[in-house]
Amino acid sequence: MKPIRIDKVVFNLIAYAVIAVVALLCVIPFIMVVSGSFSTEASVTANGYGLWPSSFSVESYRAILTDPTSLLKAYGVTLFITITGTLVGLFLTAMTAYVLYRKEFRYRNSFAFFFYFTTLFSGGLVAYYLIMLKYYHMKDNLLALIVPLLLSPYYILIMRNFLKSVPDAIPESAKVDGAGEFTIFTRLCLPLMKPALASIGMFIALGYWNDWYQAALFIDDQSKFPLQYMLYKMITNIEFLSYAAGNNGIPTVELPHETVKLAMTVVSIGPIVLIYPFVQKYFVKGLTVGAVKG
């Protein structure tokens, strides 16, 4: 039994208290939004927002869910780009990392630098924007929301670092048995990479789910708005609010503006907060791998 020391005890108490305060600060905005979304518009306009709903009501949810066509459309766009983008991006990341990991590949260091250099120098927003519009015809094209986010040099290098823990003998012995590189990658290495695939996949998926920047640059057609961008438009633009709330017969003037914004926010954070407890560990793992330099 170790002797209990007074400085240890005091410090421990401080640690518990400070951590509680910081953790609370981090969740309070979430609580506020949820409670506000269940308040009546009248109580919000009279008393402002609070931490508890002063009068319980679901009018805001009724307003957005009576005719959820545009909301469902935005959800559909976000789900579509998240799923396709993650699957394709993850596969390409893994395949590229595999090639960079194989010592038999003569040019692996040159290619690694070719990828890495893009994190050091970039052409900037204007050149990217003009090239996307003029040469790739990305205006109002759903590909603009998917393709540019497929690959990141960091993810490729993190994945390669992870692969380094796989002994060279595994692909080499398969090679001796006459397997091609692509077969070795898909049959042998992909199954071994599962933990890294889970972590990097989560990061890629989160990137797609939260993206609004590509939409802000390239998408004008409301039916192609992803969820986050639609929420942004709703918060900043009252006319858009009634479009998003659908044709539910409520005139724009009478729409509960303030609480509808909150309800929309809740509807867009919902999935993340629900999935979050189950996937958090993959992020933590990816993060500790990534902290070791790429």
């Binding site: 609370l24 969740v27 905005p29 609004w212 942004y232 918060i235 992020f283």
Partner: peptide, 17 residues
């Protein structure tokens, strides 16, 4: 877990907060 939560939301949502 509580402290990690803000990392998972987009700046649009932080803007709403």
């Amino acid at each position: 877990s509580l402290m990690f939560l803000p990392y998972f939301i987009s700046w649009v949502i932080v803007g709403a907060f």
